[in-house]
Nucleic acid binder design. Structure first.
Length: 495
RNA sequence: GGCGCUGUACCCAAGUGGCUAGGGGGAAGUCUGCAAAACUUUUUACUCCGGUUCGAAUCCGGACAGCGCCUCCA
């Protein structure tokens, strides 16, 4: 097996990946705060770690992938107040319903992008007790302190503070933009628990009623499902500080053990070179984007850049990515038609990814390079297909291999979308065809399209180009794209 | 102010101390009733200035430009 290298934010270099338990991988990724629809940036994180998940499984690891949902937080409360009419009666329930709504939307978007479901998707509100226990321990250890119901972590108790983000405490103290908080011993101390505010959801705890701070949920849930020490922790680069730094701080203080071994962070999406974010209001909602582009194209676009690099959003580039994807699909359709004709079936069994592809993915999940290998395979396959006498075995192998590489990236070829009409499959006469044309019907069923395409094939054979063009024209007006090839005719619906 | 990232041909984007990345676009050709697709050739680059080296776009130093984090953020 080729050695897998992963860039670890902790060491700022690529490291050989060795899981804590041989053959098993535990990974935790910070999921969204479900108070709104998700944008391209969320998709990038999700797609990046979906790729990691898929590739680790391909390498034979048994992977436990936990991605949380943050469903308690200031933004959720604010949004619930605005959106939920019953907020005043039952704030907690209103927040629950709101986050449920956006969780559902999130899942729809992830499904559209053909992402695998994580092994577990724990919600913060369902782990309040675990958080409370953790906070109790930190209080008992003297690593946290309670000021009138607000519980803070005392960063002076954790000497490695700053190790992930490469900061030192004095610097941060002098240049921190944090507001002076008289309750805190140190401006860098962060809230583990916020005391309850009237009219807001709260939970009971031995140290006072309230709700959890942001960071504690990830520590509590990762520990619960993956143990004190686990292999991979992922998220966006913007989470390195303070979120992940604080997670390390509280988890290591709690357990006394190593926390996550490898830290992975995906790069940001920018618009006109500026970070896409809610606060700058320059974000692009996924569901808006899906109207213009098919999700598979968006995903291909995301995978065309390495996950750690910044990616500038540009609809023109997404369209270009779509053209590249089409090239792969075209190749596969040609091969499929060839196999249908020469082999009787296009089912060819499990393929092997190109070694170059494997090598690329082993190098810190280098998907752009991996896609390069896919394209190279396509060129080779096309060349074979263009030859007069094409070797069946080789074509089968390339075909299966490309299918495999694409499906391992979650970019399953849409060969089902591209329909094939073999040249041997013509009608005996034009009666049905003429009837259909005369009906001037444009919302055509698959079998009707098949008939027209086959009828056009027959017309071509009989050199009746006038009729052939008439049929093509009708299909074009019906939103059907038609392409002639040596072995067959292909058609597909545009949208 | 601190920490970090980026700067590759027309555009996007990998990579690397000497060996073709790849895609899109442009140009020419092959093929072709139409429309495409596909193939071949072409368009060969590393922000700038020093240094190390037989050799650097790749390593080191410096400059310039852009970006991110240091406040919620994927």
């Amino acid at each position: 097996m080729t050695q897998l290298f992963i860039y670890n934010t902790l060491s700022r270099q690529k490291e050989i990946f060795n899981p804590v338990k041989p053959g098993e991988v535990s990974m935790y990724v910070c999921g969204p705060t479900v108070y709104d629809y998700c944008h391209l940036g969320h998709a990038r994180a999700a797609v990046s770690f979906d790729t990691v998940f898929r590739f680790l499984k391909y390498l034979g690891y048994q992977v436990t992938y936990v991605r949380n949902l943050t469903d308690v937080d200031d933004k959720i409360i604010k949004r619930s107040r605005e959106e939920m009419p019953d907020y005043e009666h039952d704030p907690k329930e209103a927040c629950r319903l709101l986050s449920e709504k956006y969780t559902h939307a999130f899942h729809e978007d992830m499904l559209a992008l053909n992402l695998l479901a994580p092994t577990m998707e724990p919600r913060a509100t369902e782990h309040i007790q675990e958080m409370i226990r953790m906070i109790e321990v930190l209080l008992k250890n003297g690593q946290a302190y309670n000021v009138g119901g607000n519980v803070y972590f005392d960063v002076s108790c954790f000497h490695e503070y700053g190790s992930l983000s490469g900061r030192n405490m004095e610097e941060m103290e002098t240049h921190s933009r944090l507001e002076e908080d008289p309750d805190k011993k140190n401006p860098l101390d962060f809230a583990l628990w916020k005391k309850s505010i009237p009219g807001e959801p709260f939970w009971e705890a031995s140290f006072g009623n309230g709700r959890p701070g942001w960071h504690i949920e990830c520590s509590a849930m990762s520990t619960k499902y993956l143990g004190d020490t686990f292999d991979l922790h992922g998220g966006g680069q913007d989470l390195i500080f303070p979120h992940h730094e604080n997670e390390i701080c509280q988890s290591r203080s709690f357990s006394g053990k190593r926390f996550a071994v490898y830290w992975m962070h995906n790069g940001m999406i920018t618009i006109h070179r500026e970070k896409m974010s809610k606060s700058l209001k320059n974000f692009k909602l996924l569901r808006e984007l899906f109207i213009e582009f098919r999700p598979r194209i968006i995903k291909f676009y995301l995978l065309s850049t390495h996950y750690r690099s910044p990616l500038d959003f540009d609809p023109g580039l997404i369209a270009k990515a779509g053209e590249g994807l089409e090239r792969i699909d075209n190749t596969l359709s040609r091969a499929k038609a060839f196999l249908l004709q020469k082999h009787g079936t296009s089912i060819v069994g499990e393929g092997e990814p190109d070694p170059e592809w494997v090598e690329a993915l082993c190098d810190d999940f280098n998907t752009p390079k991996g896609l390069g290998a896919v394209f190279s395979s396509c060129t080779r396959l096309n060349t074979l297909l263009a030859q007069g006498v094409a070797p069946l075995e080789e074509i089968k192998n390339y075909f299966a291999s490309i299918l495999k590489m694409m499906s391992l990236l979650g970019l399953e070829a849409e060969t089902d979308q591209i329909h094939t009409v073999l040249r041997s499959d013509f009608p005996s006469g034009f009666d049905a065809v003429m009837e259909l044309l005369a009906a001037k019907k444009h919302d055509l069923a698959d079998h009707e399209i098949h008939l027209l395409v086959a009828g056009r094939g027959l017309a071509k054979l009989r050199k009746d180009f006038k009729l052939a063009d008439e049929i093509r024209n009708h299909l074009t007006l019906s939103g059907i794209e038609l392409r002639d090839a040596a072995q067959a005719f292909y058609w597909k619906r545009n949208h």
